[in-house]
């Protein structure tokens, strides 16, 4: 049994048959042009099946006439970008660090590449802003364990610190004065007091005088007579307020007692020479480079 379709008496147009509080909706046809566009897009979409990859098969898919693939597009884009960079990369490979630094065009290119290489490889330990964390040096300041000149930074990145990967890695380490029984706990405490004194923080003067004597005996060889540090041995300067492992007395005592020895991989084994150059330039530009 089919119901007779309802026709609106004013317009003579059939309604959809639904009723809401006495209001019925007219069932006007869509404008013709609108329908044509709909069918045109349907026909157009059939073309896609043949032109582009479309239908999944058992172990593959239809490839399409023009052989397009999004991976292929990415590959082409990367190749094109590489080709665009080729000239600059060749120049970077030949130029010395100093030449790169003084050539505005090369510098801009190296900084951009260095920034992205840093974000991928270095930010995990040194932080996205190169601000560092306890045990991972801040690269923005002018306090450098192994030297802040371009060549020093390049050397450190290339060969790393205290690793097994490279023969040229930075190797020097501090003795664990308490663990190795060079000093007793009291003496460590006194040296720490003197170190705090050096960095112009508060310190017990009697204890620091005793600590000074111990310092001159055990520490000056690396840290210098005024605690100025020595990049050759990776010995940080102690006469400022920058601390890699914390500047509280307990933290300094722990450092003297047990030693510290941060490790960095030899990036020369992982990255290519030009990328290492870019990284050195970038890190140097962060503001602390000397």
């Amino acid at each position: 049994m089919t119901e007779q379709p309802h026709v609106d008496e004013f317009t003579g147009v059939q309604t959809t048959g639904h009723e809401w509080d006495g209001i019925r909706e007219l069932d006007n046809p869509l404008p013709r042009w609108w329908q044509w566009i709909l069918w045109a897009t349907v026909v157009w979409s059939v073309g896609y099946w043949f032109v582009y990859p479309a239908w999944p098969l058992i172990s593959s898919h239809t490839k399409g006439f023009i052989g397009y693939s999004s991976r292929g597009e990415l590959r082409d884009d990367v190749a094109a970008a590489k080709a665009r960079q080729a000239g600059h990369l060749a120049k970077l490979a030949k130029a010395s660090l100093e030449q790169i630094r003084t050539d505005p065009e090369l510098l801009e290119f190296a900084l951009a590449g260095g920034r992205s290489a840093y974000n991928v490889n270095c930010s995990q330990c040194h932080g996205s802003g190169a601000q560092g964390f306890a045990g991972y040096p801040n690269l923005n300041d002018d306090e450098w364990l192994w030297g802040g000149r371009l060549e020093d930074i390049h050397q450190t990145i290339m060969h790393g610190v205290r690793n097994e990967d490279s023969e040229d890695a930075r190797v020097f380490a501090m003795p664990a004065f308490l663990k190795d029984e060079i000093l007793d706990a009291n003496q460590v405490e006194e040296v720490a007091t003197y170190v705090l004194h050096l960095s112009k923080q508060q310190g017990d003067s009697a204890a620091s005088a005793r600590g000074k004597a111990l310092f001159l005996e055990h520490c000056v060889a690396c840290h210098g007579d005024r605690g100025q540090g020595n990049a050759e041995f990776g010995a940080p300067s102690l006469n400022n307020d920058i601390w890699l492992y914390g500047g509280e007395k307990a933290e300094i005592v722990a450092t003297i007692a047990n030693s510290r020895g941060g490790v960095m991989p030899a990036w020369g084994r992982i990255l290519d020479a030009v990328t290492i150059k870019k990284l050195a330039i970038y890190v140097h530009s962060l503001g602390g480079g000397s």
């Binding site: 932080g127 996205s128 802003g129 190169a130 601000q131 801040n138 923005n140 300041d141 002018d142 306090e143 300067s237 400022n240 307020d241 920058i242 503001g287 602390g288």
Partner: peptide, 18 residues
């Protein structure tokens, strides 16, 4: 202004912003 790091302490005790 650089937001990361907010500021940098230098060895001579001064403060630097980028």
């Amino acid at each position: 202004r650089d937001r990361n790091p907010l500021f940098v302490a230098l060895s001579d005790g001064s403060i630097r912003n980028g």
